[in-house]
Computed example of a mutant assay.
Amino acid sequence: MVDWLEFIAALTLFMVSHMFPVRPPMRPWLIARLGTKGYFISYSILSLLVLAWLIMAAARAPYVGVLPQWEIFRWAPLVVMPLACLIAVGGMMTQNPLSFGGLGKQPFDPDKPGMLAATRHPLLVAMALWAGAHLLANGDLAHVILFGLFGGFAVMGMMVIDRRKQRVLGQEEWRRLATGTARLNLMGLSWSPLPLVLAGAVFLVLILVHEPVIGFVPLPW
């Protein structure tokens, strides 16, 4: 049990850090003191730091096999992650009144939804793809718990955000904005040059930092 303490502590801190800062009255209290931009920047940095610790703690946890270690499974992240990067980058480049994470400068146009035609929850879909691919590639108990949690969180998050946005925006306005979008429709992927180039750069950086940060070479050869 002692060998699992770091993983349990990191997992607990990650869950707590994603439960309390985003809930009222904590969120309005933090925004009032940090400002909206300061809140999101601080929350993003905190989330990344805790996530990094959680991933490293999972790698250091005792190995308990759950899924078969087939060689083909090691290819899953290399096949899936370029798509996840494209969806995340393309989604972040578009203002998104239907979910979160949009940083685009132009107002959202429901007639030209861009990457939101593939999914109105690009960050959550990217997270689900990342989690599913890495769950297959690892397959031990700690990583099944870790990536299963992220995958479940992403899928549930899409449903929760859709319901919340319908309530906040009203059914008519939500339908107007969401008409050209989908929860997930890969046929609607945007292949614009800039998102492709940026996604390729992000994927390359992830490959390069994987070993020094995670301690594992992601290439199967």
Rank of each mutant, 00 (worst) to 15 (best):
D140C: 13
N96V: 12
G114A: 08
W130V: 03
Q106D: 09
P107Y: 12
S99Y: 01
V160K: 14
L83A: 10
L135C: 13
M127Q: 11
L86E: 04
G151R: 07
D111C: 06
G104C: 11
L103Q: 10
V160D: 15
F150S: 02
V125G: 02
M81N: 11
G101D: 01
R167F: 03
H134Y: 09
F147C: 09
G90F: 06
R167I: 13
M127N: 06
L129S: 00
A88M: 14
G132F: 04
K105A: 10
A84W: 01
P110D: 07
F150Y: 08
A126M: 04
K112S: 15
N138C: 10
K112N: 15
G102T: 01
D162P: 00
V89D: 01
G91T: 09
K105Y: 13
F108E: 10
G132I: 00
N96T: 02
G148H: 15
F100L: 06
L141D: 04
A131I: 08
P113G: 02
L136N: 02
G139E: 07
L116F: 03
A88D: 07
W130L: 08
M93H: 12
F147L: 08
G148D: 05
I145K: 01
V160W: 15
K165R: 07
A84N: 00
A126S: 12
P97E: 04
V160S: 15
G139Y: 05
R164A: 09
M92F: 13
V144C: 10
D140W: 05
G101K: 11
Q95D: 13
R120S: 00
M115D: 00
H121I: 03
P122L: 07
R164D: 05
F108D: 03
H121M: 14
G114E: 13
Q106I: 02
L135M: 04
F153D: 15
R120H: 01
I145Y: 14
H134M: 09
V125D: 06
A118Y: 01
G139C: 06
A84G: 00
A118G: 09
E172T: 13
K105D: 11
H143S: 02
R120M: 05
L123G: 06
A88T: 05
P110F: 07
F108W: 04
L116I: 07
R120W: 04
G148K: 08
A142E: 03
I87W: 00
M158C: 12
A117C: 12
R163S: 10
P110H: 07
L98M: 07
L124P: 02
M92T: 14
R164W: 08
F100T: 05
Q106W: 03
H121C: 01
M156A: 15
T94E: 15
L169S: 08
V144F: 05
V144D: 09
G101C: 02
P82Q: 03
G157N: 13
C85S: 10
P110C: 08
G152R: 13
P82W: 06
K112V: 00
L103E: 09
R167H: 12
K165V: 13
C85Y: 14
M81A: 08
